[in-house]
Design a protein around this nucleic acid. Structure first.
Lengths: 203, 203
DNA sequence: TGTACATCAGTGAACGCGCGTTCACTGATGTAC
DNA sequence: TGTACATCAGTGAACGCGCGTTCACTGATGTAC
């Protein structure tokens, strides 16, 4: 278990808030949303349950924080995947690959951490700040690239964004809930990626 | 609260199993997945908690049953919506409308009962029978119609099915989780419906 | 540099509660004769 | 049609448990002088 920097003593923790969210995240990842609890988390952080109330108002709020952290984590994976795409002779080829990369990363995350994907999109009563999501901004950047390389008409870009997000998210959700199996996945993936490109790319 | 036919006495219930699933469904619809419990349901059905164990092995199994019932309910809504589409001069127009109708019904369900949509696609450890889903069959029927009316090439029909399902499901899921608002919804809806048709319909 | 003191971030005990599940039981039902 | 009896579908009490949250507290920290 990770325990962040302590300041010489064991009485004060140093960065309890962050440690709690991290441990909560791991708990959800391994045992599902319903196993998230104040006492369970406190136990794993080696701290009294009551201590958590210095940093969170309620279990519900903690849940919200975890949800937020996971959404950020997803976006970071997307950005990382996009950056891993190497150079290409054609800018069209490259921006297309970068576009696919973020979609694949989104789904890959859902495959790898289905429980986390679940909590990321749970109906949360208490959400932390409704800033525009990093994932959405990443998608927009990618579309801008596609426009610049002449693959996408600007007037189609909003349509592209909404269609891409819906279908990729749907795919991810069906995978995470095991509604479609690993065997069926490649077909779905191809249909969705091709479909989005058929629908919005200039030809 | 609905209580089904009793057989003269109050000691034996008549159809407890069905009543339980129904009440459990309503409980989830109103208060969310996490509020589903043996005791809560038993209380509402006016029966001892232990009685439920005559019909279900565990809470987990009950959850699975509810999930299954909801998926059926969704499919029934889809079929109903499809049947409501009136006649049209062109069979193309009609089958296209019937296709849109089932997609819209899917999303409409998620909008109306977000909590039920949630449980329908929760990772369930104990699922009741993995029969091919009624919703999927309904989608296939609709695609067959599109083929017959010349709108869809047969070789594209599998791609159409997977793309349509992913994107509609994604839209429904984003709506249910309130990730997209009512205001944004019409744009998303149009993008998805158009996108699917752009991608797979013969021109 | 040393000391007094306010502030902060923990402790530990207790609260009441509702939970899933078990068990020996009993009342009602339906069947065989 | 009436009766004996097996089967079924409930009851009611109890089990141990872990939960979220509260509160008065205390040890550590950092700041003012």
């Amino acid at each position: 278990m990770l325990t962040p920097l302590r300041k010489g003593s064991d009485y004060h923790h140093g960065d309890l808030r962050d440690a709690v969210i991290q441990v909560a995240r791991d708990l959800v990842a391994n045992e599902g949303v319903s196993s998230l609890g104040i006492r369970r988390v406190a136990l794993r952080v080696n701290v009294t349950p009551a201590a958590l109330y210095r940093h969170f108002e309620s279990l519900e709020q903690l849940r919200g924080e975890v949800s937020g952290r996971v959404r950020n984590e997803m976006a970071e994976m997307m950005i990382l995947a996009r950056e891993k795409v190497g150079p290409a002779t054609l800018s069209k080829t490259r921006s297309r690959a970068r576009f696919s990369a973020i979609g694949d990363a989104y789904v890959a995350y859902a495959r790898k951490f289905p429980r986390l994907f679940e909590i990321a999109f749970l109906t949360c009563d208490a959400l932390p700040e409704t800033e525009e999501s990093l994932a959405w901004r990443t998608l927009e950047e990618s579309l801008e690239e596609l426009i610049n390389s002449g693959l996408l008409e600007r007037r189609k870009s909003l349509k592209a964004a909404t269609l891409a997000w819906s279908s990729i998210h749907g795919l991810a959700s069906l995978v995470a809930s095991q509604t479609i199996s690993n065997k069926e996945y490649p077909l779905f993936r191809k249909s969705v990626l091709d479909g989005v490109q058929d629908a919005v790319f200039a030809r």
